[in-house]
Write a protein that binds this DNA or RNA. Structure first.
Lengths: 285, 285
DNA sequence: GACTGTATGTAATAAAACTACATATACTAT
DNA sequence: ATAGTATATGTAGTTTTATTACATACAGTC
């Protein structure tokens, strides 16, 4: 059976296809996974209302060599932070619970993204940016902040970079694209009309359209190169959170990619930029 | 002894202060932690060249209830991805390695931060923001993008929010503070003169100064309430990365905190804001 | 309604971990 | 230097825990 990264998720998925005693064990574990990692096989058997060998068989079914090994994998699964479902903040939460939940969600989103990185698209995007004459980062709303962050990264590569949020500017700039121009669109949904239309305008020029957005979205359709980030935002949550974090890290990856492309001789240049800030700061005590 | 989040790191740190047999055990574990999680106490004792009770004592010394519990914690520690040191990108890296490294670093930074959240400061900051007449988010460079992100979150709470990057505006606005004004400064180093000076100006008014910055920094010293984020950026890396992610999640936490403070009746209001975007998007296919 | 295969449990066995105690080593004070 | 004391480590027995082999129960099929 699947020896996936996340045991807990695997159990949950298989939950319905288990026979009677197996599902009792599954329930007992899912009810309190943390406790399961700490209890003995006898204890868990009692909790589940089955015999010890049933628990043992259950463990083997899920790829473990036995109960202790199963507990180990379970502990890993728990520690990895990839909780089955990311936990939404409830109004009953207090200061001791909700900050942790939000961090858990963020970590979980990054871990999920890490497992399934669109390396090909990333590599192509790096190519485009590394060779670009100029780069525009376009994003609205939360993605505007991401675009701004990208601007603060990519200007370092000796390429003119800019960010814009004005819908009119977006259209005009997009239409003004030429060979060597990269229009980089950032959007969680990939459905924002303004952006999609701007992407379309840009695509009708000689410029290259790169996007960091949802797979199969209208924006993706208008892109020469689309980096998929399919993080599911918790829809109950009214504030966008996790998706932008993944976007930011992907942009870090792109920046690192361009740095590597520039080669080792480029490092002093980056160092010079960093050093330029020295005098704006109070010296370390 | 310390029951820190990362057992492996704790062992490594204490390595020098252990007695003979203990250090033998530590070595055996550090030599191959992965294997240690799988082996029996007898096996590990042989590997280390000590007796079984010595291993057992070692486990207890590090906060475990016994050997099995120790293995569990070790497994967690390994799975958490919080490897001893976060791995820097090298010029020899290729597309298969460096993106993963960057994600690992990001995750690791969030996990570290999660273990040591400054809950008291967070709670106080939430109080201040929830009761604010208006809020200013000030950050420069990378932190400007973070401030922008914060603006996109906090405007939802019926409080006038703004972000500024112009050094002159920062000073003038800070000096203009009054009762109920919250000046929220964001800075990784906490040493940026412009920000520290603005914070000082704000502190001389009736306004409240909140900062999201490094503990013990000049900026922290000028704050009524300082949320510490002591993420160590990899200094070899010329691009700031991890610290801003932690800052962003902390801001999410603050936003969630304010939402909870507003109470359940506030949700429809948030929903309305979210819904306002519907017509700007292409409908889902 | 008997047959066959699977599912589950019982009880014995084996493995692993722990505890109490014994011995050895290092350190201190005379 | 040496006896005394405290700490460190190991031995052996006990207890807990997990596994295996086997028996029984149940479900589905002819």
């Amino acid at each position: 059976m699947t020896s996936g990264a996340n045991l807990l998720a695997v159990i949950e998925r298989q939950r319905s296809e288990l026979n009677k005693s197996e599902s009792k064990v599954a329930d007992a574990i899912l009810r309190n996974p943390e406790e399961a990692t700490r209890s003995s096989i006898a204890n868990l058997a009692t909790q589940a209302g089955v015999s010890e060998p049933s628990v043992n068989r259950f463990c083997k079914k899920f790829g473990a060599s036995g109960f202790p090994d199963f507990k180990l994998q379970l502990a890993r699964s728990l520690a990895s932070g990839v909780r089955y479902v990311s936990r939404a903040v409830e109004f009953s939460d207090d200061i001791n619970t909700f900050p942790r939940k939000l961090f858990d969600n963020a970590i979980s989103a990054l871990m999920t993204a890490r497992e399934d990185l669109p390396l090909v698209a990333i590599e192509r995007a790096v190519d485009h940016i590394a060779q670009a004459r100029r780069v525009f980062f376009f994003g609205l709303g939360t993605s505007a902040a991401v675009a701004r962050d990208a601007e603060h990264k990519f200007f370092r590569f000796n390429v003119p970079v800019s960010t814009h949020e004005d819908a009119m500017m977006l259209r005009m700039l997009s239409a003004s694209g030429g060979v060597g121009d990269v229009f980089f669109f950032i959007s969680h949904t990939g459905r924002t009309r303004v952006l999609v239309e701007a992407a379309q305008l840009a695509k009708n020029t000689e410029a290259t359209v790169v996007s960091l957005t949802h797979e199969g979205s209208p924006l993706a359709a208008q892109s020469h190169c689309c980096i998929n980030v399919d993080v599911e935002e918790d829809t109950d949550q009214y504030l966008p959170m996790t998706s932008r974090l993944v976007q930011l890290v992907i942009l870090d990856v792109l920046a690192a990619g361009v740095t590597l492309r520039r080669g080792e001789s480029f490092t002093p240049y980056l160092a010079r930029i960093k050093d330029s800030l020295k005098e704006t700061r109070f010296p370390p005590s």
